[in-house]
Structure formats: C-alpha cells, structure tokens
C-alpha cells in the first residue's frame, strides 16, 4: 500500500512586509501521521498550511516532502478549505473529476468511473448529476473531500474544513475522514478551533504560538475516541488551559 508523505520543516520563517508570522519553525512529521494544529486566531495556521501546499513560499527556510524540497504546487498535496470551493457551474461528479485534472494519462471514462467510486466512498452515491447549490453544507464538504482524495495524494491539508458545519454533521465527517485516512493512509494536517475535534482525530496536536510550535503533544488514546472517555476529556482540558495560558 502506498504511504503518506514524510515531512521535514527546517527553520522556516514567513513575514508579510514587516509583520513576521512564522519564525524559524521546525517540525518533523512521519509518513501517514495525522496532525492537528490549534492556536489562536491570527497565529499563522493558515499561513503555515499555505506554505505546505506550495501556494506561498517561505521567506527563509525550507520544507521537504519525502526528501524533496517543496517548490510551488504539487499534485501529491491537496487542500480542503473552510468553504467547499466547488465550481457552481459543474455537476457534483464533474467537480470531483477536477481532482484528476493533472492525470493526463486517464481517459474520460476512467475519470468518470473513478469519480463515481469516490463519490460512493463519501456517501453521495446517486447525487452525481446534481448542481452543488442544491447540496447541504456537509454534502458539499463531502464532495470537496472526494475531489481532494481522488488522486490519492500523499498529503492532505485541511484548513478548518468543518468550521461551518453543525455538531452532528461534524461528527459524521470525523468518522468519514478517519475511515478514508485508514484506507488511503495519507499524511494529514488539520487546522481546527475545536480542541475536541483535534483530539478525536489526531495522532499529534501542535500548538502554534508566536510563530513557533509551542507545544507538541502526542495523543495516545485508542480510536475510536469517545468524548465521554476521561482520557479524552482530561487531555482536552489540558490543551485548552495551555492555549489560554499565555
């Protein structure tokens, strides 16, 4: 089975004009790890993800993906944003096919078949010919997830993808993301404001503060992790205390 990407972040800094957002940040991530990033609003979480995605370049320092320096956008890396960013003028299945855009070797039929399979995996079988605007927020994010994963990326970046969803839909999406992560084995980065969400999904929780990783906490609790489990709630309290402390 194909493995997710290992990541090596060395001494990256990023500033916008005179504002320094990330300062000499170091991080090593194992293949297939599920990382959650928490931190206060404006601390640079999205900026960090954009660097990983190759959408922006670090001011100094470098990021290696499987020993290869990241230079610009990379087909092995996919991003899911808070808004689903589906193209309103394409049907659901056409939107998923966008994920295979850079696979020139595939024929039209192959792309369509893979897209249909992927839609089935995210629980949207039979909705392929609808316009995005008729879908609910959660369904749109499922399509967005299908689009991100259809090309079997090695690294999936999730920037608060569930932020706009209600609590029940979020729980469903957690299960779905975990299921796909188990099957595809990609490396995942999830930015979230919800500490409980970070704990229920991640192997490691990173706290981003003052441009650096201020805390790197492994989550050593068996999955599935129930909210009522006292390990989970203890960890949640600990993380929230730490975030609020400074």
């Amino acid at each position: 089975m194909e493995q997710g990407a290992g990541l090596q972040v060395t001494q990256i800094s990023k500033s916008f004009g005179s504002v320094s957002v990330l300062e000499k940040l170091d991080l090593t991530v194992q293949q297939g790890e599920f990382i959650s990033i928490v931190g206060r609003s404006g601390c640079g979480k999205s900026t960090f993800l954009r660097l990983l995605a190759g959408l922006d370049e670090p001011t100094t320092g470098e990021i290696q993906l499987n020993e290869q320096r990241i230079k610009g956008i990379n087909p092995e890396v996919r991003v899911m944003f808070q808004e689903s960013r589906l193209l309103p003028w394409m049907t659901v299945v056409e939107n998923v096919e966008i994920g295979l855009n850079d696979q020139a070797s595939l024929s039209k039929e192959e792309k369509r078949n893979q897209a249909l399979k992927m839609l089935e995996q995210v629980g949207l079988k039979g909705r392929e010919n609808e316009w995005p605007h008729v879908l609910s927020g959660g369904q749109k994010q499922r399509v967005s997830l299908a689009r991100a994963l259809i090309s079997r990326p090695k690294l999936l970046l999730l920037d608060e993808p569930l932020g706009a969803l209600d609590a029940f839909t979020r729980l469903e999406m957690h299960q779905l993301i975990l299921k796909l992560w188990n099957e595809h084995r990609f490396t995942a980065f999830l930015v979230t404001h919800d500490v409980a969400e970070a704990i229920s999904l991640a192997d490691r929780i990173l706290l981003l503060e003052k441009g650096k990783i201020a805390m790197d906490l492994p989550v050593e609790i068996e999955r599935p992790r129930e909210r009522e489990d006292h390990h989970v709630s203890e960890l949640e309290t600990k993380v929230i205390r730490r975030v609020m402390h400074t």
């Binding site: 995605a53 959408l55 956008i73 087909p75 996919r78 991003v79 944003f81 808004e83 960013r85 193209l87 966008i98 994920g99 855009n101 850079d102 689009r147």
Partner: peptide
C-alpha cells in the same frame, strides 16, 4: 470571479487556458 475558486483551481493544477 471568486478568488477562492481560482486558488482551488491552481491547487488542482489548472493552468492558464484551462
């Protein structure tokens, strides 16, 4: 045109004409 959609397109490797 929604900047977010254009950025999404870039992530998925859509170039100039496409």
């Amino acid at each position: 045109v929604d900047r977010g959609l254009i950025e999404m397109g870039r992530v998925y490797g859509l170039r100039s004409w496409e």
